[in-house]
Design a protein around this nucleic acid. Sequence first.
DNA 1: GGTTGGAAACTTTTT
DNA 2: GTTTCCAACC
Length: 737
Amino acid sequence: MSIYDTLNPEQKEAMLHTEGPLLILAGAGSGKTRVLIHRIAWMMEQGVSPWNIMAITFTNKAAGEMRQRVNNLVGQGADSVWVATFHSTCVRILRRYIGHLGFDTAFSIYDADDQKTVMKDVCKRLNIDTKIFKERYLLSVISRAKDEMISPLEMEMAAQNDFQKKRVAEAYREYQAQLRRNNALDFDDLIVKTVELFQNCPEILNSYQERFRYLMVDEYQDTNTVQFKLISLLAGKYRNLCVVGDDDQSIYRFRGANIYNILNFEQVFPDAKVIKLEQNYRSTQNILNTANEVIRNNYGRKEKRLWTENEEGRPIGFHLLLNAFEEAEHIIGDISSRVRKGEADYQDHAVLYRTNAQSRLFEEKLIIAGIPYKLIGGVNFYARKEIKDVLAYLKTIDNGKDEVAVRRIINVPKRGIGAATLNRVQDYAGAYGISFYDALLRAEEIPNLGRSGGKIKPFTTLIQNMRSQLKEMSLTELTKALLGETGYIKDLENEGTDEAKGRIENIDELLNKLAAYEETADEPTLSGFLEEVALVADIDSLEESSNYVVLMTLHSAKGLEFPYVYMAGMEEGIFPSYMSLNGDNPEEELEEERRLCYVGITRAKRELMLTAARQRMVRGETMFNAVSRFIREIPEEYLESKKKKEGPAKPVNVPKQAAWIQSKESFRAKPYESQSLTVKKASGLEYGVGDRVRHIKFGEGTVLEITEGKKDYEVKVEFDTAGIKRLFASFAKLRKL
DNA sequence: GGTTGGAAACTTTTT
DNA sequence: GTTTCCAACC
């Protein structure tokens, strides 16, 4: 029996079709990665050199998994197969050839933060009122333009006499000029510049066409126009292009993903073979039926219907809770009882939600219950202030033209160099046509700097020293030396707060990652590390072997599977989101939300539980949302619905916050009978001045003062580690010790 | 030049 | 409700 006998007929057909264009429409859980891996193995068996095979994914995690599985299946030679993400592929190409486009090979990669910094400066230079055009808006327009390969000039032409559009085009042009000056690329540029390179230098394109004779693209439904251009260029010579995707799982349209790449693939490649994979190996029939029923409500999709030989399974659970607190409590309680009964481990559970902001309540309940969990998303590790500071130092050492990095750390830790000084340096740099950092080197020559001029010297000396030691020291040693000389760690230690301690831990973690990079990389370089760091996503940190409950957004969950899946916040205005319902074209946006729902449902292997809350705090406001339309789209036969009885819940069961909300509501309803205070006073506070109390986040402390406000008590507490805080009693959830 | 307090924005999703 | 940003003060 060969390794290929485990594939079903369609999968095998896809595996065997190695020459010419191929579109695999792979439903959720239909084993598409299996097909790709076996396809690679098959090609190698047919004598194709692994060196000529390329597989492109979107996340490092997906790339890593594929690499692993290819290694396991074929062993010998598998290392030569190119498995990488779009972005890292482009970076590798650009590091070699970007000189042809007038950039230096030590270019920096700018993340969203850096982009915003640049854009702020652009707006200042062009006198753009950021009240009218927000930086975020300008950046999103620019990003969309890059996705569609529209240059600043083209945008300007298209603007005609529209003043507003012209302004945006100007901002775009200036933004690009700034990036160029900083020798930096943003994420979109990585792809755009690679396409540009190929278009300008046919001989370079040709060398890569020869190298990558067999191309495979995973999650094809999420590609945008430039990415498609990149793939078409690479596959242009041999046309051995295999794309795998599912139009029903296209959830990144908002970010420029072009769904027509998949819908029109057969028009672009008329000789393309199309294979549908509709047998699902992941979920129960009930889960699949539910997914099918929901996605059926979308128009303009490629018709397919998932089926499975798996058992029917349990019905989908739906619980309507009183509020978000109860929702979190219910879900966490459910998980812990299942684990207690020994039916499953923590790692078998995922809680999915629409927005990152919803994660907090789950975190709190999990902490209280003492359940290990992993939060995906939110603030990226590499986006944290202290990490960005250290990286900015490293970037400055690596790429002196990166002004954003230099400016970030020139006064961190405080060196007494302020805005006025920086402006003078900037003017000087502009007048002499040199980079910002080079101007700093000549600080003594700059007029009007006064005393501040002398403060610059120690900084540049430090950077120059580090640069000269780059060859003698390992990167880890260098970074440690840097932290020592700048006193960065010492400053944090002196702060002594929990927050500062956390920052030090994060920096230690960064040092660990640096050391790990130096051990594993073939040729560790500072540029190499910075690039690896720039391209990681939070999802990459998810390890299957660790036993924890996973919390993440529905978007992050794409491509993953869990035996037990909870989808929380199934309410109109939350999911589908308020933005999609009130956007420019609600129909289309609603379809994307529905696809997102489909993605969520199909993550579940054994059981799927949906929850909603009658009332919920959103941005400090209590919202009363109707149950999501997606719930109504599920036929009742698949659903096991449990709604909490109407009417006030028993006070014992209601958390303090809820009690407060309720009292606030009744206060609003009957303004003349001020009931709210009686509710509060009746329950009172279990602690008084001088008592020892515990707070979830701040730990133990002593109550210094209690003031009675209009609606709530304000408590002043001196925490042992977190210092003095003023808290509202109903929110602080202080416990007497 | 640095600190602090209050206003304003933020919450859709990310390589 | 939380975080970020900016202006007014030190």
